[in-house]
């Protein structure tokens, strides 16, 4: 009897510790633009350290979905739950705005397709990286600057460029600066909207390499929206394929790309040019 009880206790303890809790849970999200569907019926769980790719053609609703998830758009229906540090899983859609904004500059990060949307172009690189630190209360110039230098190094921007404005940077550097600016507060979840869009292939490759390193090193969870299958092949653990606002296929990245089941996914995979 006692033995059984203790084993039961052991089991509950074991299952509580080992069953990983999702970091991010999306339940039945829908966003409509009038009669037209932005995205609908999206469900998934994202676990700590996991990278999720969302692919689909232009107009398939992937950016709408990302904006709903990141709190930039208000979904018409559904829940977006995030595992907050103090209160566990909380619905970020119904969360008070100050809390959501706090979340989006601490535990969340958003990397825009165009670095200009995510950077302050009139503020130096160091100021751009330091902004999030100052927003959460850093008030020591020396420490902010040291942190900025450290992060510029991590994204392979020379320390001597710290006082230059982003407008003096190349496209690839701007994108790397945007990443540094977002990751400086040690977020747990990063949203990326076409992070390599508009960059030439060699710069893309470097950026992807860097991103992969950072994601693995920091144990980040990420949701990457892209139309570039190579990007998700390199970065994503799991894949979600969207078409006309609906999710048509999900699965492990390699599984989906190597053995596509849905007709649209087959079309998508076979459309990639082989060099």
């Amino acid at each position: 009897m006692t033995l059984q009880k203790s084993s039961e206790e052991f089991f509950t303890e074991f299952s509580e510790n080992s069953a990983p809790r999702p970091l991010f849970r999306v339940a039945n999200i829908e966003k409509r633009y009038g009669q037209r569907i932005g995205c609908t019926g999206v469900n998934f769980d994202l676990y700590p350290g996991e990278v999720m790719g969302i692919v689909g053609e232009s107009g398939s609703g992937k950016s709408t979905l990302l904006n709903c998830l990141a709190g930039h758009l208000e979904p018409d229906q559904g829940e977006v739950l995030f595992d907050t540090r103090d209160a566990g899983l909380v619905d970020t859609v119904t969360m008070a705005e100050p809390e959501r904004r706090m979340l989006s500059r601490t535990d969340w990060a958003f990397v825009h397709q165009h670095a200009r949307d995510g950077l302050r172009m009139s503020v130096s690189a160091g100021g751009n990286v330091g902004e999030r630190l100052m927003a959460v209360g850093a008030r020591h110039y020396g420490q902010i600057r040291d942190e900025a230098i450290d992060w510029l190094g991590r994204v392979e921007i020379n320390e001597t460029r710290i006082d230059d404005r982003p407008s003096a940077f190349s496209g690839g550097m701007q994108q790397r600066l945007q990443i540094a600016r977002n990751l400086v507060t040690g977020p747990r979840l990063v949203f990326m909207d076409e992070p390599t869009g508009g960059l030439d292939v060699s710069v893309q490759a470097r950026l992807l390499d860097l991103l992969r390193g950072l994601v693995r090193q920091m144990g980040l969870s990420a949701i990457i929206v892209t139309h570039d299958l190579a990007v998700v092949r390199l970065l994503a653990d799991r894949l979600m394929v969207m078409k006309d606002g609906h999710v048509v296929e999900t699965g492990l990245t390699d599984q989906v790309l190597d053995d596509p089941q849905h007709a649209y996914t087959q079309l998508l995979v076979s459309s990639v040019l082989q060099v």
Partner: peptide, 9 residues
Amino acid sequence: GLMHVKLYE
């Protein structure tokens, strides 16, 4: 936080 960005600059 933005006010301090100005002072940082």
